[in-house]
Design a binder for these strands. Sequence first.
DNA 1: AATGAATGAGCGTTCATTCAT
DNA 2: TATGAATGAACGCTCATTCAT
Lengths: 215, 215, 215, 215
Amino acid sequence: MRRTGTATYATGQETAQRILDVARRLFMEEGHSKLTMRRIAKAAGMSPGNLSYYYPTRADLLADLLQYVIDGYIRQFETLRDEASDDADEQFRAVLGFVFNDLGTRETTLFFPELWVLANRDDWIAQQMEKMYAQYRAILVDVIGLINPQLSETRKSDLALMISASIEGHTVFVGHGRPHRPRTRQLRDLLIEHFLRLVKETSEPRGANGNRGQT
Amino acid sequence: MRRTGTATYATGQETAQRILDVARRLFMEEGHSKLTMRRIAKAAGMSPGNLSYYYPTRADLLADLLQYVIDGYIRQFETLRDEASDDADEQFRAVLGFVFNDLGTRETTLFFPELWVLANRDDWIAQQMEKMYAQYRAILVDVIGLINPQLSETRKSDLALMISASIEGHTVFVGHGRPHRPRTRQLRDLLIEHFLRLVKETSEPRGANGNRGQT
Amino acid sequence: MRRTGTATYATGQETAQRILDVARRLFMEEGHSKLTMRRIAKAAGMSPGNLSYYYPTRADLLADLLQYVIDGYIRQFETLRDEASDDADEQFRAVLGFVFNDLGTRETTLFFPELWVLANRDDWIAQQMEKMYAQYRAILVDVIGLINPQLSETRKSDLALMISASIEGHTVFVGHGRPHRPRTRQLRDLLIEHFLRLVKETSEPRGANGNRGQT
Amino acid sequence: MRRTGTATYATGQETAQRILDVARRLFMEEGHSKLTMRRIAKAAGMSPGNLSYYYPTRADLLADLLQYVIDGYIRQFETLRDEASDDADEQFRAVLGFVFNDLGTRETTLFFPELWVLANRDDWIAQQMEKMYAQYRAILVDVIGLINPQLSETRKSDLALMISASIEGHTVFVGHGRPHRPRTRQLRDLLIEHFLRLVKETSEPRGANGNRGQT
DNA sequence: AATGAATGAGCGTTCATTCAT
DNA sequence: TATGAATGAACGCTCATTCAT
């Protein structure tokens, strides 16, 4: 929590919440580079001075904001896990299907590329992002383990990473307002079924531990 | 070409080139939001007024800059096609391998997410980006056709789109400085080999033409 | 009021006033085209940022400034009316004499031509100017009515317009620093006595209502 | 002539003329403060560098431009004199009628207030303006002398000044696009007929020579 | 006689931030 | 907890002007 306004009183807590909600909306609508302190203050109906009371610097606000949005996604992943059906295949389809559908929402299509850009320039943001994705992949690893119990941890984790990265990549092509949006359903089915087969049929690489370095 | 400085003299041509090169470097280093006219002018050792002589507005400069960088990638794709070996499988591996490796360079890792963000907010940029990816997918479609000649155009194009989107997604995870960079080789092989299998084994969806609408 | 700085504290009120006073002085001294935000800020001993806090745009400031100066003139007209003597002829001489003398002050000589130019290009300014002149002519119409009660409203209003326009025209010739300034007294007397006679002796145009259109 | 481009060749002369014509149009359309070297150059289809060849500074160009426009008006006054009828009253009506009508044209309504503003800040411009008006008043003085031969030179000159100043003042009220334009005809007739009467009936001020000083 | 190329100051405006109230 | 008031740097851009070609 980067906020310094202690928000001990009820009004303070409300204000703190209002700031985050307003900032979130502005971030989604216009992107990080147009998210200025003044705009947030104005949209939240407060003075820039008071906004500075809660967040002394723009970086602090941005940090809390990203945390806030990311927490929302993490909460969704948890829901996902809880709702898991008995059938492992169906769990796999449900998780990936959810993420694939979500990436078509306006919010997600706009939010994640901004996040990727920020993570490229800011280590703290990169960390938070990685934490979020790790949480998501943990679910994937579990499901993959159910489907193919013979896989090593490394293999499961590589598969989860590859699958999640592949899906994320579709944001740019079939996301909200993106040019290949009409192919969403076909691509989603193709992708999920292929990866399901891959998980089922993959085996350990011959004599490899996969840790011998980089390309 | 959004430039108005005609660059007819030798010095003018040099200046025009210097602007693009400097702008490219700054864009990669600091991102679009810190790419200001004044910074470019300063870094290129010229006055703001002279920069404005070449590019009347920042948008013009950005447009030319993106075009310039994108053209570089397009040229690489063309080289790729020209260097194609006789073996279809090897062509497939060469093309995807190249893109996968390239996404690990500092330039590409930093550039593309910025491009995706800009494309989300600017139609012209979205168009240029789509043009570039279309060119790249055209190569993929050809190679896929060689590998599995029975696929319909729609199917090939869907496969190319899915494959390229999946690879792009890895930028954020195994790109330059990204946390899973050490797994690059494993992920690359996993991805490429299994997409190759997919291309070989996939068939038309039963009784579908893939055009029945969206999800 | 185009000002956004609320000027609720004492220091804010002082600043707001200082801005108008400084702007007024600069406008008179150098004219509208040299009245820049930065110059005003500098002359008022404040930062450009703070000036923008009070007036977000130059147009806002200019609007308030003109209003401010015009209000000063309107207040003078009201004083004029209040100080009216009993004798109608004397009232006529007093009102026109005042305006004629005022046009010889440095401020008025410099201000009004600028106002005319601005009114030629900006409707809002044209409106404010017309409001001011209307207020002044209303006084004239009253006095004219006292002198010659038989005149129709239209006739009185035409006479007031013609008389005031004629006097305004002298600004350019006998105003402060203008070449015919030494003839001021003669011209003033000639003009006023002539117009007084005109008001007394004029009658309705034969069979006309004066509304038949334009030339 | 402030121009330095010698304009000795035919093409040079054409260019010099084109500059003045373009500058004139821009001046009328947008006023002096928006008359920039770059705009003129662009509108004239030449480079700023070449414009500077003809007019090294903006002030030089403005000087020539004003001279050029003023010369046009002077030429009109000369035509006026040449076309004079035999009847003195009719001459008077013709001259004033022409000026009054002219002040309703878009060009004149926009040009003169700009000229007055410039004359307030620049002595050279004030001089040129005065020269023009003097030429115009010379005609008026002649006509007034025909109508009332008993008037002294001083008296005639005061009358001419007063009459011309009065008419000029109407520019702001009944000029092109000005709010009282519909009353033009009435005001014009009122003004001219009563000035004619004034000229006929006025006599020397009792025992005065009008030179005793200023107000 | 003309263009291309460049400068550097200045413009209006927005910004993150600070601090007294 | 909140606003009002202020700073100073930076932004994109336009300008008159200069000078080599």
